[in-house]
Amino acid sequence: MAFWYNVVSGQVESDENKSQGDDLMGPYATQDEAAKALESAAARTKAWDDEDRAWDEQGLED
């Protein structure tokens, strides 16, 4: 079973009770992973921003 994070309600949903796709992040393997969806997304975005910054500092811009 997959789990989803609903960005509108802030609730974790399962395949059995999930809302429309536009409101969901996922799928996640566990309820805990789904509950931490926003934290995970923020961490990935920060890592990508850090990589971009390092790339730019090396003078390797597009």
Score class of each variant (00 low, 15 high):
residue 39 E to T: 11
residue 42 A to S: 08
residue 32 D to Y: 02
residue 26 G to C: 04
residue 22 D to Q: 14
residue 40 S to N: 11
residue 39 E to I: 08
residue 42 A to H: 04
residue 48 W to Y: 15
residue 40 S to V: 08
residue 34 A to T: 01
residue 45 T to Q: 15
residue 20 Q to P: 08
residue 35 A to T: 02
residue 25 M to A: 06
residue 49 D to Q: 15
residue 43 A to N: 08
residue 22 D to I: 12
residue 24 L to D: 01
residue 30 T to F: 03
residue 13 E to C: 08
residue 40 S to Q: 10
residue 11 Q to Y: 04
residue 12 V to A: 03
residue 45 T to K: 15
residue 25 M to N: 07
residue 18 K to E: 05
residue 16 E to D: 15
residue 45 T to H: 12
residue 44 R to S: 09
residue 49 D to R: 13
residue 37 A to M: 01
residue 41 A to N: 11
residue 22 D to Y: 14
residue 40 S to W: 05
residue 21 G to K: 12
residue 14 S to G: 13
residue 15 D to V: 10
residue 13 E to Y: 07
residue 32 D to E: 11
residue 44 R to F: 02
residue 23 D to R: 13
residue 33 E to A: 09
residue 23 D to N: 15
residue 14 S to P: 02
residue 20 Q to R: 15
residue 21 G to P: 06
residue 18 K to H: 13
residue 34 A to M: 06
residue 42 A to M: 07
residue 36 K to F: 02
residue 29 A to S: 06
residue 29 A to I: 00
residue 46 K to S: 09
residue 19 S to T: 13
residue 44 R to K: 12
residue 48 W to T: 14
residue 39 E to S: 12
residue 42 A to T: 03
residue 40 S to H: 08
residue 43 A to V: 07
residue 34 A to Y: 02
residue 43 A to E: 12
residue 30 T to A: 05
residue 33 E to S: 04
residue 14 S to F: 05
residue 30 T to R: 04
residue 19 S to M: 10
residue 49 D to W: 12
residue 12 V to W: 01
residue 11 Q to A: 09
residue 38 L to Q: 08
residue 25 M to T: 02
residue 22 D to W: 14
residue 35 A to G: 11
residue 37 A to I: 04
residue 44 R to W: 04
residue 35 A to P: 01
residue 41 A to Y: 06
residue 11 Q to K: 11
residue 46 K to E: 12
residue 15 D to R: 10
residue 23 D to Y: 13
residue 12 V to G: 00
residue 23 D to G: 07
residue 37 A to T: 02
residue 21 G to E: 11
residue 47 A to M: 09
residue 11 Q to E: 12
residue 35 A to R: 08
residue 15 D to P: 06
residue 43 A to C: 02
residue 43 A to L: 10
residue 45 T to M: 14
residue 25 M to R: 11
residue 34 A to L: 05
residue 11 Q to V: 03
residue 25 M to W: 08
residue 49 D to L: 13
residue 33 E to N: 06
residue 47 A to H: 07
residue 41 A to E: 10
residue 34 A to S: 03
residue 38 L to E: 11
residue 35 A to F: 04
residue 14 S to I: 02
residue 41 A to T: 01
residue 18 K to T: 03
residue 16 E to C: 08
residue 26 G to S: 01
residue 13 E to L: 11
residue 41 A to W: 05
residue 30 T to Q: 06
residue 48 W to N: 14
residue 22 D to P: 01
residue 48 W to M: 15
residue 41 A to S: 09
residue 23 D to V: 11
residue 28 Y to A: 00
residue 37 A to H: 05
residue 25 M to Q: 06
residue 21 G to I: 05
residue 42 A to Y: 03
residue 46 K to Y: 05
residue 44 R to P: 00
residue 16 E to K: 12
residue 46 K to P: 00
residue 13 E to N: 03
residue 16 E to V: 08
residue 11 Q to F: 05
residue 34 A to C: 07
residue 19 S to N: 13
residue 30 T to V: 02
residue 45 T to E: 15
residue 33 E to I: 00
residue 26 G to W: 01
residue 30 T to W: 00
residue 17 N to Q: 10
residue 15 D to Y: 06
residue 35 A to I: 00
residue 21 G to T: 12
residue 31 Q to Y: 03
residue 19 S to L: 08
residue 43 A to H: 08
residue 18 K to P: 05
residue 45 T to N: 14
residue 37 A to G: 02
residue 45 T to G: 13
residue 24 L to K: 07
